[in-house]
Design a protein around this nucleic acid. Sequence first.
DNA 1: TCTCGATGCTTAATGGATTTAGCACATGCG
DNA 2: CGCATGTGCTAAATCCATTAAGCATCGAGA
Lengths: 340, 340
Amino acid sequence: MGVKRVTLADVAKLAGLSTAAASMILTGRPDTRLSAEAHAKVHAAARELGYRPNLAARALRTDKTRTIAVISDHVATTRFASGLIRGGLAAAEKAKHVALLLETGGDPAREADAIEAVLDRQVDGIIFAAMRSREVFVPDVIIPVPVVMLNAASSKFPTAVIQDEYQGGRTAVQLLADSGVKDGIVLLGHNAETEQGLFRSDTVARRIAGIRDEMDSRGLGFDAEISCWEWEPAHGYELVKTLLKSMRPKGIVCLNDRLAFGAYQALAEANLRVAEDVGIVSFDNDELAEYLRPGLTTIALPHEAMGKKAVELLLDAKATREHVLVSMPAIVRGSLRGAS
Amino acid sequence: MGVKRVTLADVAKLAGLSTAAASMILTGRPDTRLSAEAHAKVHAAARELGYRPNLAARALRTDKTRTIAVISDHVATTRFASGLIRGGLAAAEKAKHVALLLETGGDPAREADAIEAVLDRQVDGIIFAAMRSREVFVPDVIIPVPVVMLNAASSKFPTAVIQDEYQGGRTAVQLLADSGVKDGIVLLGHNAETEQGLFRSDTVARRIAGIRDEMDSRGLGFDAEISCWEWEPAHGYELVKTLLKSMRPKGIVCLNDRLAFGAYQALAEANLRVAEDVGIVSFDNDELAEYLRPGLTTIALPHEAMGKKAVELLLDAKATREHVLVSMPAIVRGSLRGAS
DNA sequence: TCTCGATGCTTAATGGATTTAGCACATGCG
DNA sequence: CGCATGTGCTAAATCCATTAAGCATCGAGA
């Protein structure tokens, strides 16, 4: 507590120069006419005193804080969320920035408060991250700093980072088909409303579009399409259990890993083996996917890559002002025949 | 971009008073002799102009930023981590603070950098959160602000928030015994070194101490104790599979939910029913626990409560300077007989 | 009438850095 | 020699709010 900070004035005094000179040297200004000797003296003095600039003072003059804000609707719910954050933090650290993290729960009032709170702290940019992509931020506040949308879109802020669901959808079908499944294919989790973008995010609509286009281009079709609103293991379990009464599928495209988990349980009860009897491919690369036996082949959400990209766009003034699609990698495990 | 901020001077001018008066009124100083009329005029002016104080300027004078830092070794790995963060963010928000989140990967160099980065930004306090409790921070830097350790302990910083593993251990055994299991009890995941605090965190040692004390006090004993280093589903599966060759357990205390998940799989293969044939109780309340069928009864890590507590301690100047134990709630599901 | 104390407010210093304008000196050129 | 130009550096303003110190004014008491 008691130790007073070393100021620029202290450094300047030790170096025998003015604070102006010290400032210019330490901030590394290019066009300066200060001598090499002055540079050396200032740097030596700064090192000797362990000088650290007071960023509040600097911010007051420059309006730059080397701090960004990540305003997210949900932080804790999914691994996806923490992946985004982790990727973002890493990219920020690389750029010598630091990030404020705020959670709003999707509540517009808290969103507005969050925006004010971070603007008060003069952040250099804001990332709005949404876990449910459909939710749109409608902040009336004028935001005088760059904004990047992460896993969300907004007409007001054109720069956005989203995963390439369309390509992911195509890849999923590709993997299933390449594993030898040509018929008896079931789509699990599709929802009519979904494709119209009414309820869930339209990211899911794009995922399904990719799935359908790849099916079509291979001359394949679904023998059944099972809709459901919620995508939890229990739903996957019930729906597949019901399905098995009327048909014997050879392949299942699950719209997320939790549904797939439920499907595994239902198949096991019916003494059907995953991979050998029924190939399964899914989406998200949830933590679950690795634990299942056999391991679940899934199209991963590239969370860290997205977080990283968002920060890079935010900090790069001349970056594109458009949507950036991050590709979704396939994580191949044992739930398809012929895979390891 | 172009809009210049409203300053206190603008407010003062509109109110027809000095900035000093405006400042005193807006910060709500108690001992002021300013008239009620002045108060009204300043508040009206501030509202009319949409005045927001420049926190950088304020910080320069007061050394208070209403910003805290959470420096964590791992952010993305576990739900536990995000729970801590979420709880912390919520508490910070309530206290009108905002939090910087930094991740160090447990690397001392990055830790040191992180500390400098947040001290430069004049944070009001720092929380060091560790996901692997054993890891100790050894920052040589003098930290002139309050520090709270979260899920970790340090001789240098006495204030710490940790979960009450001992009580949790006792509760687990209590639930198992109350469900009617009196013998054939197996401990899964215990590790000799663990209890000496050599490898894993000593939080686990406390957990085991609680388990043993509760067993003893009920006159119970373990028929088998299965050690293993890693606590992933695959290990639980293999170990229980092996165990079943030599005995038929009636109850299993798993040291975490992933082991329990593996145990479920091995029991299912042996046509043993969880709850009816074998009662299972576990720790962590992992996401998995809810998905399993029957649901896994587990002693939860009170992550959000811990994060919340840590922030409260940090911001309360006259708070205790000791360890605070947060109790671990039991989440009762179907894996024990007689439970729902 | 004069002094004293309260009342209501202002002036000016302050925090620590950045940055514009410009000073003092040296050198080059005619 | 005188003037323009260049070189190396400094003085002082500035960012914006907080806050100690102090200035008028007024009423009351001596």
